[in-house]
Nucleic acid binder design. Structure first.
Lengths: 103, 103, 103, 103
DNA sequence: ACCGTGGTTAGCTTTC
DNA sequence: GAAAGCTAACCACGGT
């Protein structure tokens, strides 16, 4: 699948910029670099999507195990906020320490 | 930092029990499973965040190399639409096949 | 229904003033303007709801006529994607033109 | 290669919308009806989109006039709930009336 | 440097 | 109960 996909991407990249292909590499080198960048981005976005699916799957398991999906989501959200709060608190603490020469 | 964080999270879990949580007992089986689920989710969300940062970074490189960030984003979006379109087209084709008994 | 409703709305507006509302005075100019804005919005939202119901109705007809609702939805979606794609492509083209000073 | 695919897709898409596309269905009539349905739907969706834009515009005006967009949205939401609540209350009242033979 | 804007993501609602 | 569409919150970016 991934090989096929890679090829797809290359083709699509050259297909996208303009109906006429000569716009693609006005600058040859630059075009290649652009393609490389785009491929890196798309690779990462695939990974991201995969992870999002994994997460969804876990919520599915959760649900199947009898847990309340919505509730667990709320917990996760709360915990994220909690972590944020602590991070901020630490930052403030650092500032204070710096201010009184304890850094 | 990460160890500290993990501990933080565990503490937070026990600190924020959902009302309808089936673990009346802190050491209960259900409670352990819930914690495990939550940890898996949070691990994945961390990964997701990391990937998002990577993507952002690449756009930064792009930009620094002289490419127009906005344009590249548009290209990536366009290519994503392409994939979407294919998906839709396939779905319709399947529906048609089913409709005429070719499924 | 509509007369009753209109009255309702006016009452509700005076009943639910936002804390930071600049009208300290119930009959204030700002208050009147706010009410006018809200009424315009609500009127449009009613229209929107009506249209959504119409669409739903058409799908009902479709279905009753023997068409596969799901398939038709997929077609409509695909066509929408088509439009989207064109929009994106145009945007990219514009960006390119700008980039090479053709804007 | 991908161009081939492109063409495939485009064909599939263009097979759907054109009113004068007689290849779509051997039965002709059904195809025409389908096209008609799709056009009605798309027309309504356009209207819906236009209305949504109008609403957005009003929020823009609001904002420009010094009102807090977010707050006004909250008000509108509240009022919608209010209306819903009343509707439900009326329904219940109707049920009661029916129950005691006052309908 | 801030505001406003657009785009992305997550949550909610409704449908199948 | 899963899936999709809609809506609302968030965030990052560009303009001023």
């Amino acid at each position: 699948m991934s090989n096929e996909k890679e090829n797809d991407m290359n083709n699509a990249v050259s297909a996208v910029p303009s109906p006429e292909d000569e716009t693609q590499d006005v600058g040859g080198i630059a075009g290649k670099r652009l393609v490389a960048f785009i491929q890196r981005i798309e690779r990462l976005e695939e990974e991201k999507t995969a992870i999002m699916e994994d997460i969804k799957e876990i919520y599915g398991e959760l649900s199947a195990t009898g847990f309340d999906k919505k509730a667990v989501k709320a917990i996760v959200r709360l915990r994220k906020i909690e972590v944020e709060k602590r991070r901020e608190a630490d930052e403030i603490l650092e500032l204070y320490k710096t201010a009184i020469g304890m850094s």
